[in-house]
Simulated scan of single mutants.
Amino acid sequence: MRERASKLHVVSLSGGKDSTATALMAIELHGREACRFVFADTGNEHEATYAYALDYLPQALDITVDVVKADFTEEFATKRANLARISAGEPESAVYGKRKFMYAWTPETAALALELLVPIGNPFLDLCMLKGGFPSRKRQFCTQYLKRNPITEYQMDLVDRGYLVESWQGVRANESDARRWLPHYEILSADMAIYRPILRWEVADVFEAHRVAGILPNPLYKQGMNRVGCMPCINCSKSELAQIARRFPQHIERIAAWERLVSRVCRPRSPVSFFHKGTQGHSGQASTIEHIVQWAKTSRGGRQFSLLSDLEEPSACSSAYGLCE
C-alpha cells in the first residue's frame, strides 16, 4: 500500500481581500510549509493586482505563489481545422453535423476568421476568440476555464505526487445567492477536499484580518473598486465601471481592441460586446465598451448625463469599504 505524504492546504490566491484573508488563516493554523498558494492568471487583471499578488504578498507573508495559466493550443487547432474545411468549400453541416446555428459561416467569412484565429497567449482573450464572444452572468465560462480548471490541474498534480490536498477557497456566503448554501467543508475523494474557512464572515471581518496581520489590502480597494479579480469584471457595477473609465482608461481601450478582434473571428452578424445588453442595467441598442462607459457616466436610469463627468478628477481615495477613514 502506497504511503501518503502529509496534507497540503492549497489556497487559491487572487489578490483580492477574501483570498488574502484565507491565506492569512491558513498560515496561522498550519504554517507556511504545509501550505501552497496558487494564482490563476486570467490575462484580464489590473497591473496593481499582479504586483499585489505576485510581489507584495510573497514578500510580506514570506511565501511562494505559484502561477497557473490556461492554455488553449489544442482547442485552437481544432477550430482552425474546422474553419479550414469550411473555407475550402465544405458545407458547415458536414463539419458540425446536425448542430444548428443562428448565423452560418460561408467560405469567405471562414477564410477571414481563419487568418486571425491564432492564439495570442492571453488566456481571457484566447478563450473569447474560441467561444466567439465574451462571457456573461448567465454564461460565465471565464471562471471555469481560466480559474477553476487550471487550479484543479495544479491540485491534481499534487495528488499524483502523493499528497492529500485540501483546497482552501476564500468565498463568503453573503456575496451571492449561489454561495449562500455552500458547505464549509466538502470531501471530494480520498485524496481531495474543499474548505471554505471564511464562508460566514462579514466584509469587516476580512479587513480586520488584514489589519491584525499588518497586511495592506489591494490598493484598488481605495480606488473605487468593489472587486479586483478582473479589470474590468463582466459583473462590475455601473459606478465601478465609471471609476475604471476615469482612473484606468487604458483598460477600457484594451477591451475595445479585444471587442474588435473577437468580432472578426466569430460567426458573421453575431453581436460581440464585452458587456451583454441588459447585464449592467444598460438597455440601449449599442453595447460596445465605449457605449457602456458613456452610459455609466449617467444618472436617473441613464437619462441624465453629467457634462462634468469627464472633467472631474477622481478623488485620491474612494472606498466602498470605508478604507479611507
Rank of each mutant, 00 (worst) to 15 (best):
L307T: 11
E75D: 13
C233K: 14
A53N: 03
R227W: 03
E115Q: 13
D41M: 06
I63T: 12
V272G: 00
P183T: 01
H184G: 12
N218I: 06
Q144W: 10
Y52E: 06
P217G: 01
P232M: 10
R196D: 11
Q144D: 14
R260V: 15
I198H: 12
L164Y: 10
R180P: 04
A104H: 12
A81D: 15
K222A: 07
D66N: 14
S93E: 14
K100V: 09
S14T: 00
R4Y: 14
G281I: 04
S136Q: 02
L8N: 01
P58H: 12
S87N: 10
R36H: 01
C35M: 09
I120C: 03
A84W: 13
D66M: 08
L112E: 08
E186V: 11
D310M: 09
E75H: 09
K131F: 02
L130R: 10
N235K: 15
Y221T: 02
V11G: 00
L146F: 02
F134S: 05
A113M: 13
K138C: 10
E3C: 14
M25P: 05
S167G: 10
A256E: 13
N174Q: 15
L220E: 00
F76T: 00
G284V: 03
F39V: 02
H9L: 08
T143W: 07
C128G: 07
S239A: 10
R260K: 15
R36E: 14
R2H: 15
K297T: 01
L323D: 02
P219T: 12
E208C: 02
K7D: 00
T106E: 15
A84Q: 14
R148S: 13
G281S: 11
E259T: 09
S237C: 09
V65N: 04
H276N: 10
I252F: 09
H9T: 15
R161I: 02
Q250R: 15
A60M: 07
V159I: 03
A81C: 14
F72G: 07
M156V: 04
V272E: 01
A204N: 08
R148Q: 13
I244A: 07
S14E: 02
I151D: 01
G162R: 03
Y321F: 14
C266E: 05
I289R: 11
I194T: 05
V165R: 10
V203I: 10
P107A: 01
V228W: 04
K98N: 11
N82Y: 11
A110E: 03
G132E: 02
P219A: 04
Y163V: 08
F124T: 00
S176N: 01
Q250A: 11
Y52M: 04
A242Y: 00
I27K: 01
T106V: 12
L116G: 04
V228R: 06
T279Y: 13
F141N: 03
Q294C: 06
D62C: 03
G322E: 08
R161V: 08
P197E: 01
L13F: 02
F274K: 04
R80C: 09
I151M: 06
C35H: 00
C128F: 02
C236S: 12
P314V: 13
T298N: 01
A242M: 11
A193F: 14
S167D: 07
E28L: 01
Q59G: 11
R300T: 03
R36K: 11
R137K: 13
W168G: 05
E166D: 07
D205H: 06
